[in-house]
Amino acid sequence: MGIEFYLFLLINGLSQGMVLFIVASGLSLVFGVLRVINFAHGSLYMIGAFLAFSLSTLLPAGSIFSFLLLMLLVPLAVALLGLGLEIPLFRRIYGKEHLLQLLLTYALLLILDDACRLIWGGDIRNVARPDLLAGSIKFFDMFLPTYNVFILVVGPLIAVGLWFLLYRTRAGNLIRAAVSHPEMVGALGVNVSRVMTATFMLGCWLAGLGGVLMSALANIDLGIGMEKIIECFAVVVIGGLGSIGGALLGSLILGVGVAFIQLPLSRAAIVFPYFAMALILIIRPWGLFGKPER
């Protein structure tokens, strides 16, 4: 096992971490503005993955355009689903007791997960990689799976895009202003409810995009929503709730950590996120990039 093998592990871990980042940043963003932890975020990711699967069966296989179309349509569909959830449900619970907020999103998780089971059933599925991304790329003397490299390109693009949106546009200013003083943003003539709805939809869009990317990276089944939401929780505990930079760091730590530990101790790998979380809780309970509350 030479360096090639370790590089392979690294690429694998990083690409898993990138998908995790895309999903977790959505969770963190929604929390930052709406102050609601959405337990159903993982379910939205799972819906994205299954939608990608269903849609892919209708499109010509192997074509890169089919896959790009999936990446375009599926996140949009999930964002629209988010719109359908935000207006009648989430809007009613902003600013209410944490307990009720958590129970509401938990109820959604149950409904969405079970709806997935009814629609797609318990089979293990995946989306075939388009021909262009199916093979491997020669990198010096090594061959790396093209699709993983593709994710390693998409992930940072999303990170930069998010950063640009949040820090370089008026919409981003509004979103970040709403984090600290939503009522003041309203008093300045901005329809804050709309900012919140848009932020929620963006969070859902990210969950959906993560789902599409995962559907061709690994197998998908009914457990992936729960698995991902728990990974997301580990990410936000490690990185700090509401911090996008923290989400990126946390995701990469988890992705790479799991990939490398899987090798000597395949069973222990599932424990790694918890271990990392416990460690952070002991040394820095509010996360690496977060701020202590009260």
Binding site: L100, A107, L110, I111, D114
Partner: peptide
């Protein structure tokens, strides 16, 4: 689970 979910939503 869906029925439960809706009951819960309504109660919340």
């Amino acid at each position: 689970a869906i029925i439960l979910g809706f009951i819960l939503l309504g109660m919340v």
